[in-house]
């Protein structure tokens, strides 16, 4: 059980590029934290700094109450699962899993016992004597997990571990990883660019953009009260509708439509955010949308159209009638988020 504490952790490359702007947060014992963001946002760099694979430019990093800034990766009591698994191709599964222990001069019988335990946990018993090239993607992923588990580390690090798997297997492994982490109770940091993985797996999500932390919060917080327009548009599929609006007389308006009557903001331009599923069909509703395209998705439908000339999407259940053309709708209470039109920050 351990805490991870970052204090103003920063990464600047020799060419002056600031990959990670000073970041501070604390991870509580047993927590599953997901770092999410588009490619190049600095999430992998941050993970690699925590792992010790990248030098830390500034700030301090504590793992389990110990400042580890200058320690070797091997001495930080961490284990890491890589995107391409990074299994040693010439070693059997057994040796792959045991290699880290072997390097720590642990007696052979203890290694054998620990490898057996890990392989039982991961259903790898039948594959222990195979080479990685004889395994499927999911099995390789499990071996990579085994290599991490067997060391019994203070911290698990995952670097986009599922992105090489096909969609079906990804869903399955997502659940497996989550269940395993729950069972072992090891603090974990998981990097992904996939917001679905972030939402489904995380206890807490850290959304990053351009080297900066945009928001830290539980999946529900991130989803329902995004701190910036970036978070609003990045999390959720389809993303939150972001419309140009005005505050006038205490009400928020998009074109002629009033979307919020008691807007907590000064008069002037504003960005109005509405989740697609918070718009509901209502024959007497105050909004009239013009629907151009209906996407049939089985369990529900996505309607794409415009409100006061601005693009937006609506998510309706399969029972809700859906045709192109005018669409009367209302908003669920509390559906509207307001963002500063200039900075994009939540008001």
């Amino acid at each position: 059980m351990s805490h991870v504490t970052l204090t103003a952790l920063r990464k600047v490359y020799p060419n002056g590029f600031e990959a990670v702007k000073p970041a501070s947060y604390t991870i509580t014992p047993g927590e599953f934290v997901v770092l999410v963001g588009p490619s190049g946002c600095g999430k992998s760099t941050m993970l690699r700094m925590i792992a010790g694979l990248e030098d830390i430019s500034d700030g301090t990093l504590e793992i389990a109450g110990r400042v580890v800034n200058t320690l070797d990766p091997a001495d930080r009591d961490i284990a890491m699962v890589f995107q391409n698994y990074a299994l040693y191709p010439h070693m059997t599964v057994r040796k792959n899993i045991g290699y880290g222990l072997q390097n720590r001069k642990i007696p052979k019988d203890v290694i054998a016992a620990k490898v057996a335990e890990a392989s039982a946990l991961l259903n790898l018993d039948d594959y222990l004597d195979r080479k990685p090239s004889q395994l499927s993607g999911g099995q390789r992923q499990r071996v990579a997990m085994g290599r991490a588990i067997v060391r019994d580390p203070a911290l698990f690090l995952f670097d986009e571990p599922l992105s090489n798997l096909d969609a079906k297997l990804r869903n399955q492994m997502r659940i497996e990883i989550k269940a395993l982490q729950r069972r072992l109770g090891v603090t974990s940091i998981y990097v992904t660019h996939d917001q679905v993985e972030a939402m489904t797996m995380a206890d807490r999500i850290i959304v990053m953009n351009a080297g900066r932390i945009e928001q830290i919060g539980t999946p529900a917080e991130i989803y329902h009260t995004p701190a910036t327009t970036f978070v609003a548009s990045f999390m959720g599929a389809p993303p939150m509708n972001l419309l140009d609006g005005q505050i006038a007389g205490g009400a928020a308006r998009v074109g002629d439509h009033t979307v919020m009557t008691d807007a907590p903001a000064a008069p002037g331009p504003v960005t109005v955010g509405i989740r697609p599923e918070d718009i509901v069909a209502d024959p007497n509703g105050p909004l009239t949308l013009d629907i151009a395209i209906v996407e049939e998705l089985g369990a529900h439908r996505l309607l794409h159209g415009t409100l006061a000339g601005q693009q937006l999407s609506v998510h309706v259940g399969k029972d809700s009638p859906a045709t192109t053309g005018p669409f009367r709708a209302a908003l669920k209470p509390g559906a509207v988020s307001l963002f500063d039109a200039g900075t994009g920050e939540r008001l």
Binding site: G52, A79, M80, A86, Y88, P89, M91, G100
Partner: peptide, 26 residues
Amino acid sequence: PEELVEAARIDGAGPVRFFFDILIPL
């Protein structure tokens, strides 16, 4: 692959071990 080197570092393989255990067999 770079990740193989990194995995070995995390697994506690120093330069000599990496050379004999990973690089030569590969």
